[in-house]
Every structure is written in structure tokens, then in C-alpha cells.
Design a protein around this nucleic acid. Structure first.
Lengths: 230, 230, 230, 230
DNA sequence: TATGAATGAGTTTTCATTCAT
DNA sequence: AATGAATGAAAACTCATTCAT
């Protein structure tokens, strides 16, 4: 948790630090990320960072649990709980891919949370983040069940949630990267790649994902409008 | 590639080294794993490791591309290509979970290949492994399509393969760990946990996964009854 | 190039480091000189050296191209270009020997630049230094030619410069050491030896050198009388 | 000193070891030369080297004090003590340059003996070699004095010997390398360079050197026939 | 006698963290 | 509050030398 000093920092100074920290942590594994680099690039004394955060992990934690989620939420917007469940689901997936494309560094930071290696401290952190995501997804699926959009006789909600999370998490990320013909690192380096995964393409991918999930979750097969069958 | 010297090592010495190396690399991300630690715990001179392997990466690569796959293949056995597609698929998944439970350190090592952080050299290594796995799965699914077991009108085999891989990879791992009520690291520490995910439970989980996948891939819905309900 | 940090160091600390570095590099060939030793003897943390210099070579380069020449220039003073050529030449040689006797460690450092072994990086460094010395000497001899002090019918200035450089460089150093009845290393160890090569003796040696050079370069033979024969 | 075992070795095996040892020691400074490299390239077990020589230094010493001088002597032939002194001197110098050009690795090994850095053990070795060379040259110059070929009123034979040694040692080597437009290391690498310093060119350089020395040593100026003045 | 695996001390280098200014 | 110099533990890696076979 950042110190009050940090929170009261002039926006410019604060932003410089945050920006460079995100860059550094998104480009190298935690162990190899260097506070010296961050300090130097942000034009901030190394000692100052230690006045804002307890240590390297504290800074990383804050980025992962506060800064990144805040941006992500702002980007995704709030889903409309009233609309059609599957349409909403598909939109959510599409927005997720858009986030990956538009904010690759933040997305990368978040993706790192899935890394099952990592040192104990970092692992705890990652686990917390993952579970939060799972909880959110479970609630959403529960809504689907409640509205009848999901209706599989044998469904175990907990298990299904985790499997679906894998699809829309690592699964779709993998697909996107495959589409880009690049590794995440190369995406970070070149902004031009972003153009290669425009909204239309993203919608198609989201649709494929929903198709798989929908079938698996026992939804009626037909309602799949949009560019699908007609 | 290990030197002939290494391959000709007395079993005891060799095993000590391999064991401790797997432990180290499965407990920390590559960047944080320490050859000194490995040497010390294996009771082997640091210099000796450098007679067996070119460097840290060479040892890691060998574990990841030779040692782990060899054990995994031996454990999984060869699937029967003649039998029912979905039954075979379900078995494969069950064996995968069994491997995770019986050889958690090796499973963990393999899982690390999904780590999207890592330094360029390591990433290259990981990517190669992942793609190999994807290729294998794609071939398997293609067989399903050929036999009619998979029959979805809109199916894009490439995309589907990656999404299915996410389900049976990170997805099921996550589920298993949830079942164990523990993180992979805790599993590594305590062998007794293994008992909590016996064959029956594993079969049930595998079934749930196949359910999701099967529905998503447009297979006929009924045949899903095998060892399930009845 | 040393960092600003280094240049702003408290004199005491800075001197300790410089002194021990010169000692180390003057006592062993570059490859065998150890930063750990320097740090330990200078009572400075190993890490600190890396805040002052990029690496081992950077420190060595600075000593060789900045520190040593600065001291040498300060010691030698500026020669009087107006005076008699050969008298000036003889003085220069005498001062060179005096430097060797008074600052043996620095002289030794400079002499090391003649080492034809060494690793490519170091060789490049050495070569640059040698060529700079040669250029300076060539200019000086050219002045002698211009003033008529040097007048040999067959003279090839480039070749002559290099041969003369050998005389006043390795040649005289060798003579001096012979006089001292010791190797340079023993000179380094015992300051008392310095007394055995006082100004008078040095002048005599310088005279012998000039004698050889002068004859070889075709100067008129007579004017050689100064403090020599009476 | 090599063990009897070594001396009794089959020529082939012995030669392989000697050849690779010379190569290694002529390409890197003593500290960086690697016995492992030598053993590997010579196809001889590392342990065997320790049966032939006490240690790294022992091997190096033998090369420097036995092997290299033997070859050099064989190459130079015995000078004719009866002929004209200066003509003989010039021939000696020319042969020395020829040796440098024809056997660069051996020459390089010998040149290293001039390196004033080096660790105490190595230094002692170098010093002994140098003094041997000096003694030989002094004897030769003494012969010149006896025959009247050298006749300088103020001559100090000891000093003169050392200065002349500097000319025909480091001095001429330097000139030769300058002629070749290359560093000694580059000479080692490319045999084609040898052609650029053929006998004619070498004679001219030798002549220039003798010119300088002769004048300096007070010889009569005229007898310098050959391509000199006419 | 020949072998080459094993050893471990020693090297350069990095970096999170502290603390005096 | 901000600074950035100082620190030292730890890492990867090398290589002369030993010694059991």
C-alpha cells in the first residue's frame, strides 16, 4: 500500500513513476524487473520510491491490485445486466480483447498474475487476483443460470466457472497472439500491430469463444445471431 | 544438451541432481532459480554442473524438453486410437490430472512453460513447448472431426484447439488445485494431499470438462453417459 | 569514463581507490588483476566501484588514459621548444627516468601498455596509447630535422621514430632497472631503492642514450660536451 | 622441466601437445591461457599434461626456455664470426625479422617475455630469458669493439647493449608490425600477411636499424654499401 | 601410464535496500 | 520530503589441479 506521501504526489511526478513501473514490470519477470531502471526512467530518486512504497513487492502489488484493475474497469465499462445474457457475455469478451490490444502493458501485467511460478510472496498476490476474477465470473454465470440462459443438466457451477475462465483468459489471449503472429513482448514493442486486430476481427473471435462456451453450458443452440448462420 | 559425462553418471548422483534441479525450477521462476542452490542441495560441486550442461538455460531446457516429457509420456501411456473418440478424450484428461497429482513437481515444471513473462531465451523455449502441445491437440481434434465425433457447423479448428487447450491446461489445473484447496506449491510440499484427488474424483472432473468441450464442439449430446450417472 | 559520482568523491575515498587500483594493475597483468582485491584493500564496497566505473576495463582505461598521463605531464613539465634540440631531448629523457624512479607504479602502469599479449579489448587500449606516444615523438624528431639538429641522408622518419622510441622506452627502462639491480616489481616494493638513481646518475644515462641516438640520426658529433667529459 | 615420460613420448603425441600449447600461449596472456583448451585441441587428457609437467607454469617455462629457443636457433643458423662485423649484424637482424614473419607464434611467445607485468613466477622466467639474450648481444658487440668495427670514445658497453637490444627487439618488432599494418594478433591469424614483408623489404628495414646503431656506436660512416648511398 | 570427472576457490557483476545529507 | 551514494549478499560461471580407475 502506497504511503500518503505518494497519494498526495503532484500528478506529473506520480504518473511518471506509475508509467515507468508498469512498463518495467510488464517487460520482465518480477525477479528481473529493476527498481533502479524504474527510478532512472521516471527521473525519480531511488530513495523516493522507498518513501512511497515499502519495497519492490509493495509497488508491484499496488500496480496489480489497484492501478491495473482501475484502468481495466474504466476501459470495460459496466455491463448492462438487463440485456440478453449471451450478447452481454460476448461483448464482455470482445472488450477484454480490446483491452489487450489497446493497453498491452497493463494487460501483460495482469496476465502475469497467471504465472504459476513466482516466489511465495508474489504467488500469494497472484492467487488473490485470480480468485477475485473467478468470483466475478461465477456471479455472472450464476445470473445466466438464473435467467435460464444457461441450462445444462449436469452443471457444476464452480468447475464450469474455472474452465470458462481458462477459455476467456489464457485461451483467448493465446488465440489473439496467434492472430497477431507474435509474442506478447513483440506486441508491446510495436503499436502498429494493434491495427491488425480491429473490432470486426475481435468480434469474430469473441463469437467463436461464446460458441464453444454456450454449447458446453447447454444453452439453446439457435439464438446465435449476428454474423453467424443467419 | 547434456554432455556424455552427464548421461553416463552413476544413477544415484544423476538422480540427486535431476531431482533437485526439478525441485528448484518448479518452485521458482527461471530467473530466480539458483544453480548454487541446486548444487548445494544435490551435494554436487557447482563446477560439476557446468561439466554436464553448458549453462543454466541448457539445464533448464533439458529438463523441460527431455526429462519432463519422457516421464509424462511414460506415465500417460499411448492412447488407443481405435476406441470411441470422446471416451479416449476423457481418459486423456483424467491421465493428465493423475500426472499432476502424482508428479506435481514435473507437472509444475511443464506448467511454467505457460509463463508469459520470462527473458527472451526462456520465452523462446516456452513457446516451442506450447506450440508442440497445441499441434498434438489439434491433430487429435482433427481426428474427431474426421470420425464425425466433432461436428460443429462454424468450427474454426485452430481457434477451437487453442481454447480447448486452455480448458484442459490452465483450466483443469486450476480446478484440481481448487479441489485440493491448495496452491501448487503447497501440493509440492505435502504428499498426503495426493490422496484427496483419487481416481473417482478425477474421473468426475474429467467428465465435466469433456461435457463442456463436447457441447461446445457440437457433438451429439446424448452419448454422455458412461461412468457418469447411471 | 568515471561517473560524476566518482569525480565528486571525497578526496580521501577517491585517493584510496585510485591508489589501490594503480597498485593492483601495476603488479599484475590486466587479466589477473582483481577488482575484489582493489575493493578490499581500498576498504570500499565492491558494488561502489561499479557505481564509479562501468566495469573492470573502464576503470583500467581511465587509469591508463587519464590518471597516469595527468600525473606524468605534471611531473615532466613543458619542454622549452626554443632551446637547443639535443639538450632538450636529453632533459626529456632524464625526466622520463626520474618519473620512473619517483612514480614507479604509474610508470609501470604505462609500461604495461607495451604488453603484446592481452585480450582484444585491452590490446586496442594499449595500441592507442602507444601510437599517441609515437606520434608525439615523431613530431619532436621532425622539429629536430627542421632545425637541422637531425641530418641523416637516408633517414626514414617513421622507422627512426619507432626505433628511437624503443631506445627511450623499453631500452632505458631496462637500463635503469639494471642500474637498480632489481626488477620493476622489487622497485615497487622498496622506496629506498630510489636513492640509488639520483639526478647525476640519471643525467649520465640520459647522455649515453642521446649519444647513441644522436650518432644514429646523423647529428654533428662535437657539441656533445655538456656535463660529459669535462 | 618435463618428466622423462614426456621426453619419451611418441613424436606425434608430443608434437600435438607442443603445437597446441604454443598456439594457446601465443594467443592469450598467460593468465588467460587455458590448459583445458590445450588438452582438448591436442586430443590429450588433461590429466596427462600433469604427468608431463608439474603445472601450467612448468609447461610455459619449458616452451619459453627450451622449445622456442631451439627452433629459433635452428632458424637463425650460426653467424660467421669471420666476416665483416656490420654485415653480419645486419644479417642477424634480417634473420630475426624473418623469424617473426615465418614463425609468428613462436616469435610472439618470445616477445611475451618482454611483458613487464605478469605474476612473480612468470616474471622471473621472463627476466632470465631477457638476460640470456642481453648476454649474447653483449658478447657480439664486444667482438665488434675488439675488431674496431665499434669505436665510440664514450661507450659504456653494458648500457649500449641494452639500448641496442631495445632497438632490435621491441623497436624492430614495432616497425615490422607497422609495416604490416597490423597487430601481432592479426599476423597470427592470417598467413597471407607474410608475403607483405619479403626478404627485400626486410633487408631494407634491417639496414635502417644498423644505420642508426652504427652511427650511435661510432663506427666509420662510409662502409655502408648495398642499396644505401651508392 | 593415461584418463577425465570432480572439485571449489575465485572472478566479475547486479541490485534491493539503507541512511546521512 | 527528496536524494542518491554506499553497501554487501548472491548469482553465473571458469579453470587449475587432484585422484580414483
Amino acid at each position: 500500500m502506497p504511503s500518503p506521501t505518494f497519494l498526495a504526489l503532484p500528478a506529473d511526478r506520480r504518473d511518471r513513476l506509475v508509467r515507468e513501473a508498469i512498463t518495467e514490470f510488464s517487460e520482465r519477470p518480477y525477479a528481473e524487473a529493476s527498481l533502479s531502471q524504474i527510478a532512472q526512467r521516471a527521473q525519480i530518486a531511488k530513495g523516493s520510491i522507498y518513501q512511497y512504497f515499502d519495497d519492490k513487492l509493495d509497488l508491484y502489488r499496488w500496480l496489480l491490485t489497484d492501478e491495473a484493475p482501475r484502468h481495466k474497469r474504466a476501459f470495460l465499462g459496466t455491463p448492462d445486466p438487463a440485456g440478453d445474457f449471451w450478447a452481454g457475455f460476448e461483448t464482455m469478451i470482445e472488450r477484454g480483447m480490446a483491452f489487450l490490444v489497446e493497453h498491452p502493458r497493463l494487460a501483460r501485467l495482469t496476465a502475469a498474475a497467471a504465472d504459476p511460478s513466482a516466489t511465495p510472496d508474489v504467488r500469494g498476490l497472484h492467487k488473490a487476483i485470480c480468485e477475485a476474477g473467478i468470483d466475478e465470473l461465477r456471479a455472472q454465470l450464476a445470473r445466466g443460470v438464473a435467467t435460464g440462459a444457461i441450462a445444462h443438466p449436469d452443471l457444476d457451477l464452480d468447475i464450469a466457472t474455472r474452465l470458462v475462465a481458462a477459455i476467456i483468459g489464457p485461451g483467448l489471449t493465446d488465440v489473439v497472439l496467434q492472430e497477431l503472429g507474435a509474442s506478447l513482448h513483440e506486441v508491446l514493442a510495436s503499436d502498429t500491430l494493434r491495427k491488425r486486430l480491429g473490432p470486426a476481427r475481435r468480434r469474430r473471435l469473441a463469437h467463436q469463444a461464446v460458441l464453444l462456451i454456450q454449447g458446453g453450458l447447454g444453452a439453446a443452440r439457435r439464438p446465435l445471431r449476428r454474423k453467424a448462420r443467419t
